[in-house]
Amino acid sequence: MKTIRIIPRLDIKGPNLVKGIHLEGLRVLGKPADFAKYYYENGADELIFMDVVASLYERNSLHDIISETAKNKFIPITVGGGLRTISDIKEVLRVGADKVCLNTAVIKDPELIKTASRKFGSSTIVVSIEAIKEENGKYLAYTDNGREYTGIDVFEWAKKVDESGAGEIVITSVDKEGTGQGFDIDLISKISSIVDIPVIAHGGAGTKQHVVDLIKENTIDAVMLSSLFHYQFIKENESRISSEEGNIEFLKQKRSFHTFEPCNILDLKTTLIENKIECRI
């Protein structure tokens, strides 16, 4: 039986943890270290850090956050955002990441998947695919957090990613991401049926039931979640919300919570097990 991995996703901007809607309109939620600690203790199977602005401004500011996390959180850590070259990858692995997540760079240069997986091992290379559904029903891959049009068909790209030697695929529905309206099950099912490598589903979960429905319909291997867990953390730790930049007033008003029924990782895993979906508790 397959054990489903539950992976909290931490979007990072400078020193802060942020969250957007459709990968845009970022809001500051707090300190990445506080969230990482909470998720580790709460049973996260892995952590993923995405430097959400690095891709745009070509900078890498994650190294300190990765090293601090890797010092005492003994679960796999994936890092993405702005990684362009073999030496960028080498550098984040050196400071404590176990895997890297690539999107923009490999769409520009698909050969990088081959080179990187030969050099670091397939299992180290995760490729993120950001999908947007066009009016004609076609799904196209975007880069730079859903900002940049590429014209590339998502399913053809997924096959190519698999054949090029990537170890895993993250499939994000940009349309659903941050909305809490549920996953794009059609998109995710199709991706997981056409590739032979593990698939991580991302984008749209608003409730535990959304996650259950997704896994029951699919052969996916992992689910990546952010809002659902972040809002729960904030509920439980209101007094600790602090930040040096950005407007956190909206957090205190809880305005963005209405489409979500936040839960923590343990709650979610308990529900999955009740639904006969295996996961690690």
Binding site: D196, P198, D221
Partner: peptide, 17 residues
Amino acid sequence: SGDLDGEKIKVPHIMWN
């Protein structure tokens, strides 16, 4: 191997097992 009991086995095996 890619196939076990007729079912597709995903490689790499990346999982808490």
